[in-house]
Structure formats: C-alpha cells, structure tokens
Amino acid sequence: MLASSGCELRQAMYNQEKYEPLEASAFFDDGLSFRNQVTGTVARGQMMLDTHYYQGMVDGQLASTLPVTVSQELLERGQERFNIFCSPCHDQTGSGNGMIVKRGLKQPPSFHQQRLRDIPVGHFYDVITNGFGVMYSYASRIPVEDRWAIAAYIKVLQLSQNVEFDQLPAEDQRQLQ
C-alpha cells in the first residue's frame, strides 16, 4: 500500500497536469493539445503588409530585387539552408539530380537552364512559399528571412555555373588553357 501510493505520487510529479509540446489531448475532438489558429484571424506580427518581403511581389510583378541586404553572412546562411531543404531533390549544384530523384521522385528542372536564369529572384521566393506543381510549399518549415537567403544563394549558384571565360580569375584561366 505504502509503496503503491508512493509510486502514484511519483507518477504525478513525472507526468503533471500540463501539456508538453505536441502531447495528445483527450479534451479536444481532434486530439491535439496544440490549437491551430482560428481561420480568418490575424495575430500580432502577422500583418504582412510589405508585399516585397512577404510575397516577393512589387507592383503585382515578381520582384527582381531582394528586400534584404546581401552580405557574405546571408549567402552562407542561404547555402546552409539550401543544402538542408532543397538538395535532397535539386542536389547541391541545383541541377536537379538529388538523391530522392534517383529513388523515383519527378525530376525538377535544372536551375541552370536559360528560363530559370532569366527569371526574377522573386520567383524562387514564391516557389519556396507556395510550392510549384508537385513540389510542396516549404512555408511552414522555412522562415521568411531564410527563404530570401536561399533565393539569393540560388542566384549565386546560377552565376557560379555560368561564368564567362574572361570573368574567371587569372589563375583559373591559365589552368584551363
């Protein structure tokens, strides 16, 4: 008796009457303790009035400039996030031959084809935010700031794969000759 009441007390402290993140709830119909936001409501900090920053659009057109300042840090962040979230399918160079594609996923277009090289940077932001064709949206997984970092990095990838010979550093020019 003593032992069992001891255990109950212990259990009560181990599993208190509060929800930890993602813990199941018997109270709500959908079984979730985490409540989704009520449709049609806007919480503080969710007023996304800056269309350039939040939608990648300027005057109803895809933005061709970044709403954030480009820096070495931004590009490094973009590279890291690209490798985490995009490379499984688009691979680290953006040519569209990622590991998951080899296992049977639809092959995405290479970022180095002319159409995508000419497209405004806002397109990449838009694809990450809203998805494209069979590609899902990454809006719930990648914060806005990081989406721009990735978009900026893709532009850099495109440049890196398409350098004109006379733009190469002298050292590389010599090696190629």
Binding site: P21, L22, P88, I100, R103, G104, L105, K106, V134, M135, Y136, S140, R141
Partner: peptide, 15 residues
Amino acid sequence: GVPPTETCMTCHSQI
C-alpha cells in the same frame, strides 16, 4: 519537434 505528416508527404506523395 517531430515532423508533421505534411513533411513525409513532400516525398511520399510520389514515392
């Protein structure tokens, strides 16, 4: 965090 089903479906809607 443990991923929501949507994360699995980014690949398993096709694989």
